[in-house]
Design a protein around this nucleic acid. Structure first.
Lengths: 184, 184
DNA sequence: GTCTATATATTGATAGAC
DNA sequence: GTCTATCAATATATAGAC
């Protein structure tokens, strides 16, 4: 799906159907055989991201280590490598779309929320696996959302400053928070 | 400045100069007397946000309490009220622009980075004022960026889910982290 | 400085041949 | 299913009167 890459690189509004068709080595007319409107194409892209969560995001980092907490940091390391690889010009495709078209397109926003929720569920699996090490009053579902908060906020600043440092610092603080949270 | 409000509500690319002119009760032709291009208008808007940091963002929350740490949470409360007031459809105008046009327009990105840096500086003033209560190995400049990370990440999820909860949870976790960090 | 009018390009989308 | 051709609308931007 060529649109996925283009929306990721330039955003939804800045990508024309001409761009999409050219990248797919087709013509604009052909696009409309598959997608009724440009918004429909966006929804298809967001559905695609839902499908890609495990194969493209979680599976590799999760296999790198047995420790559930370290799995989380392996996921962050994957995003860190992505930022470095693009010179901190691109971050999280879902986060980008959340802020660009979130409120204007209800159907898209719901799929964005689903992407967020599924991402958090994967992280919560790790937190649950380490449940005995956490204080009993810690809500691990909320904590999984806080982990995403740190990821997205760190990515945003890395892109804003075009340097990986704010993202790396965010990882360090998350590490410090976990250290203070987890039983020794 | 009408463009500021429109970029905030609909984003940069989704706002036309016609929209801006109409909101300013003028005509598109008039806009070009003040701004050479649409990108120039964006830069002016971002400059405006730099000027507004203290009068429109920091001053009121900072005056609400003497405790420097509570000043920070007063700032978060201000953003929380903003989210609630708009039904979680709008968040941080700088964050929006950072992810929508950040990499495509270098001049804009630099002004976005300046907005981020100044925001963090204000927060760091609070952290420095509470310096003796922090562990000596805590880098308060980095911590100020982590505070922004949590703000922006929390706003993003609040908008994605169209509910204030993720933002409120982020505040709770920041509070918990500070509690664990600060000397009793 | 603000207006009207318009140039030029591009947009999302459609029609119909093959 | 993919193409060519094209529509109608809209975009940014300009020219020149007042």
């Amino acid at each position: 799906m060529a649109a996925m890459q283009l929306f990721y690189e330039h955003g939804f509004n800045a990508t024309t159907l001409n761009d999409v068709a050219r990248a797919a080595r087709a013509n604009t007319g052909s696009l409309y055989y598959f997608f009724k409107t440009k918004d429909d194409l966006l929804l298809a892209v967001l559905d695609n991201y839902v499908q890609l969560l495990w194969p493209a995001v979680m599976s590799a980092p999760f296999e790198q280590t047995e420790d559930p907490i370290e799995k989380i940091f392996a996921v962050f390391e994957r995003y860190r490598q992505g930022l470095i690889h693009t010179g901190c010009t691109r971050g999280c495709p879902i986060g980008n779309l959340a802020l660009e078209v979130g409120d204007a397109k209800p159907a898209a926003r719901e799929k964005i929320a689903l992407n967020f929720a599924n991402w958090c569920k994967a992280i919560q699996q790790c937190l649950d696996a380490a449940a005995p090490r956490f204080p009993p009053d810690i809500d691990r579902e909320k904590l999984s959302r806080f982990v995403l908060t740190i990821l997205e906020g760190g990515i945003m600043q890395a892109r804003g400053h075009r340097t990986i440092r704010p993202f790396e610092e965010a990882i360090e603080f998350l590490r410090d928070y976990f250290n203070r949270l987890l039983k020794k």
